[in-house]
Write a protein that binds this DNA or RNA. Structure first.
Length: 273
DNA sequence: AGTACGCCCTGGCCGC
DNA sequence: TGCGGCCAGGGCGTAC
């Protein structure tokens, strides 16, 4: 499931390949992947013939900035992939390939998404933030301790708050579990009751865990692959996620697994108070 | 403003 | 071997 580190890895890979290149055509094989107010025809029309001036990431969204001041946005949902397909690699399109972006010389990006929870749409650079409605970007310089203090002035459970894209962008179920373990904070704690010292730990954990995961080129649980079909390595470093029942690496207490609004949540009942 | 829950969707896994 | 049923969950809509 692509969260911030996985999307960042894909972004870095694709950026090298497509920055400065012109989109020859974009084919949308499954029109329902186009959500928001745009139709598949509108997306195709606004992308065709445009040059990609930059590839960026905002939270878990992958952004292709076009020379028309439009932005082509992909959200990968649970199982989305953006695969670079050199003509000589002849990556075959299959039932899960929903969008194909073609460049000159037959180079392509394939958007695959088995569970179809992802989406693609076009907006303008000016409307981007308004459209995405995302909160703080945790690896930007302006994400300070004070930012976190402000975000956490809420009665929400800290686990929910970390996964809320309008509060902090890019953190999903895996990294919220790992971050809270690293910070030693129980996932059900109301955010506004966290002490200043705990918020310092949390801030540090957010930056550390995400940075570490990017260095590992992401986390391959299930479908995730980078732009070149490569797996990430962070799954080998999970300390709680999907380790329910395993001994905690710090204190050997069995890691607990609970259900939280339909999502699984893993934590050490002893280390995380 | 929270939370809970259903929905979208498919492959993998379990039990019979 | 095969098949029904359940599970995973990001984000959104709805009800409370």
């Amino acid at each position: 499931m692509p969260e911030l580190p996985e999307v960042e890895t894909i972004k870095r890979g694709l950026r090298k390949k497509v920055k400065g290149k012109k989109i020859a055509s974009i084919k949308i094989l499954l029109p329902k992947m186009v959500r928001r107010n745009a139709t598949d025809r509108e997306v195709a029309h606004r992308a065709r013939g445009k040059k990609i001036v930059e590839v960026k990431r905002r939270g878990k969204a992958l952004l292709f900035i076009l020379d028309s001041k439009d932005v082509l946005v992909f959200r990968l949902g649970m199982t989305g992939q953006m695969l670079w397909s050199h003509p000589r690699l002849a990556l075959r399109r299959d039932t899960h390939t929903h969008v194909i972006i073609t460049f000159a010389k037959g180079e392509r990006i394939l958007f695959r998404d088995m569970r179809q929870f992802g989406e693609v749409f076009v907006t303008t650079e000016a409307d981007l933030e308004e459209t995405l409605q995302m909160g703080a970007e945790p690896l930007e310089g302006d994400f300070t301790h004070e930012t976190l203090v402000q975000i956490t002035s809420s009665p929400m459970k800290i686990k929910h708050l970390l996964m809320n894209q309008r509060k902090i962008a890019g953190i999903g179920n895996i990294y919220s579990d790992e971050i809270l373990f690293e910070a030693g904070i129980h996932p059900l704690r109301p955010a506004r009751l966290l002490k200043d010292k705990e918020l310092k730990m949390l801030h540090r954990a957010i930056v550390c865990i995400l940075t570490e995961a990017i260095a590992c080129k992401g986390d391959t649980i299930g479908q995730y692959r980078d732009a070149f079909g490569e797996s990430g390595q962070y799954q080998n470093y999970h300390r709680v996620y999907q380790r329910g029942g395993d001994p905690c690496q710090r204190c050997h207490t069995p890691v607990k697994r609970i259900k939280l609004a339909g999502r699984s949540c893993h934590y050490c009942p002893r280390c995380q108070a």
